[in-house]
């Protein structure tokens, strides 16, 4: 999952070294590097294991017979990136994610805000959402194909569904945590309902909105890839599944790596936007986390 970032090892605080203590400075520098170095080492070991297992075609219940070697994946990558069809597949997937995710945001955030503010709307809609929500977006694939006139629309719809609920529910949950005294203060200062939404409620729930966006983006990718594999024409999920059907095994791994990279990139983008729009939230650290 692209939204699960596990921090390995807390940053090591620099011990207070006396001025000019060269050895202490070197020690601190080494300690700082220890974390990243360990991480790189593990990655290198995993690559090495992959290489050995596939080069020697190991088979012990799990079979590496047909798994491509790192070198063959690299070769197919260099070929694919000069192939316009491959770029088109990436582009299509990004477009689908973009459309579905933006639609989910455009609908989920305002709906979460209004449902949080007006009890009547919440009482009316929440039970329905609670029933629909546990159905995974992938389970909607056949229904979606029936509902929408084109394949393209049905895939975007699946992506939308996947991200809609996390965004809506996180926004709604954030609304429950807004300090009511802030709303009262705003009203005392002459704020009317629209201003209360824009100036108080929206900024107050932004942290939870961005949590929802990060989770929603992860689910959107899961849903998109599954939908493309089942119902797709074009797209990186479709490419990956096609590679299996056409016995072009290196392309499977290439597709997987691309999906991972896109997921990572899109959640980094969300964190960056969050960092930019919430300057008050970065007083202590001063860096996106």
């Amino acid at each position: 999952m692209p939204d699960m970032v596990i921090e390995i090892g807390a940053p090591v605080a620099a011990p207070l070294a006396p001025a000019g203590s060269h050895r202490a400075a070197v020690r601190t520098a080494l300690l700082r590097l220890r974390g990243p170095a360990l991480g790189l080492l593990t990655i290198a070991l995993a690559l090495l294991a992959w290489d050995l297992l596939t080069t020697y075609r190991v088979s012990f219940h799990i079979r590496f017979l047909n798994v491509p070697t790192p070198a063959s994946v690299l070769a197919s990558a260099s070929h694919a990136f000069s192939d316009p069809d491959f770029s088109y597949n990436l582009l299509i997937s990004c477009r689908r994610i973009g459309t579905g995710f933006l639609a989910a945001t455009a609908l989920g955030v305002p709906l979460g805000l209004t449902m949080g503010r007006w009890r009547l709307l919440r009482d009316a809609l929440l039970p329905l959402f609670e029933i629909v929500r546990p159905i995974p977006a992938i389970a909607w694939v056949p229904m979606s194909i029936m509902l929408w006139p084109s394949n393209e629309e049905s895939i975007v719809f699946i992506t939308f569904l996947g991200s809609f609920f996390p965004i809506l529910l996180n926004t709604l949950m954030g609304m429950g945590q807004v300090d009511p005294v802030l709303v009262r203060a705003a009203r005392c200062l002459g704020a009317k309902e629209v201003s209360i939404f824009r100036e108080v409620l929206l900024p107050a729930v932004l942290p939870q909105v961005f949590t929802g966006l990060a989770v929603g983006m992860g689910v959107a990718w899961v849903s998109l890839i599954a939908a493309e594999m089942i119902a797709g024409q074009f797209g990186i999920g479709y490419f990956t599944w096609e590679a299996y059907s056409l016995v072009q095994y290196p392309d499977i791994v290439l597709g997987m790596v691309c999906i991972g990279a896109l997921g990572l990139g899109s959640s980094a983008l969300i964190r960056l936007v969050g960092w930019l729009v919430m300057p008050w939230g970065r007083l202590a650290g001063g860096r996106p986390k």
Partner: peptide
Amino acid sequence: ADRGMVFQQYSLFPW
């Protein structure tokens, strides 16, 4: 806004 109010809890907008 004719009647200003100061609350016991801090009520500044954090953002």
